[in-house]
Design a protein around this nucleic acid. Structure first.
Ligand code: MN
Ligand code: MN
Ligand code: ZN
Ligand code: ZN
Lengths: 153, 153
DNA sequence: GATGATATTGCAAGTCATTTGCAACAAGCA
DNA sequence: TGCTTGTTGCAAATGACTTGCAATATCATC
């Protein structure tokens, strides 16, 4: 018997601990934003997250969403992605997760993949150039299967 | 006996032909910008190009550099790159050239590579998901060999 | 070579996502 | 409860890039 609910792997960071360790404060806004950020699917823009946040907790400002998203990124709870659509998208950063993205340019769907061979080949390439890799970004743009069918509509 | 001078492969497009085919006009600004764009190393921002252009031909505006860069991209003579440093960088687009980038986050050096295995594996990944690839972007960020030596300075 | 329709330019002003100054406010320790 | 200092909402600022517009230049036509 398996669990069909998609579970988010827990992050290796706890927000309240991070905050108090840094002399920062827990606020209802931060709690609300983190909660909705985790509950939401991945790859939200600040605007999309703000929209969800304001529905549940009126009065939370745009600026606070931005500031909190930056905080979460610094804390390691969020990861920033700049795809080719003009704004930054954030995704929940579960522990030790690395993946790259397939992005549908028609409907915006973003799917994820991991490929150890590609990762290894990247290191080979870098090694040949004496380059020390810190991070990388692989984005594949095109049409998802649904949108291929819809082509020509 | 080999040629040590790095030669730019010729583009498959000629600007004046492109312009007249589209009912557009050749101007001294466009000529100057293209000339300096090609002469310069790769991956220039609009600002960097404008700086070079204004040194040689006073009076050419920022807006014209931007407009010309967009024109060159549409003509297939330039390629836009959005790395993680906040602005668009353009590179001369020689015929049938595809490559990916290694970017030094300390000095900004950008080097290029091609790796057929990685390209093939990307297609495999996409195929498994029923995804039709249109283009992709692989950027490896880290430290170039020079900057590794300078670390700690 | 002069003419005229229209593309192009420089400038200033406008976009748009994101950031920031600031005064009102709230967390958390004493 | 009081007080220090971090946090918020709002509006204004940023900064890369774009655009409206009047002046100017190109080029097909005469
Ligand atoms: Mn992702
Ligand atoms: Mn390149
Ligand atoms: Zn799609
Ligand atoms: Zn370097």
């Amino acid at each position: 018997m398996t669990c069909n609910i998609i579970m988010q792997k827990p992050a290796n960071i706890n927000l309240s601990e991070y905050l108090s360790a840094k002399g920062l404060r827990s606020t209802s806004q931060r709690d609300a934003i983190l909660k909705l950020f985790m509950a939401a699917g991945r790859h939200l823009s600040a605007e999309e997250l703000h929209e969800r946040v304001r529905k549940a907790h009126t009065g939370i400002s745009y600026a606070t969403v931005y500031r909190t998203l930056k905080l979460l990124s610094e804390a390691g709870l969020a990861k920033e992605n700049r795809f080719d659509d003009g704004f930054t998208r954030y995704e929940y950063n579960s522990a030790d997760d690395h993946h790259d993205h397939l992005i549908c340019t028609r409907c915006g769907e973003i799917s994820e993949f991991e490929n150890d061979k590609i990762e290894a080949l990247q290191l080979d390439v870098a090694k040949k150039k004496g380059f020390k890799v810190r991070n990388h970004k692989l984005e594949i743009y095109g049409l998802c299967s649904k949108c291929q069918r819809k082509q020509g509509e």
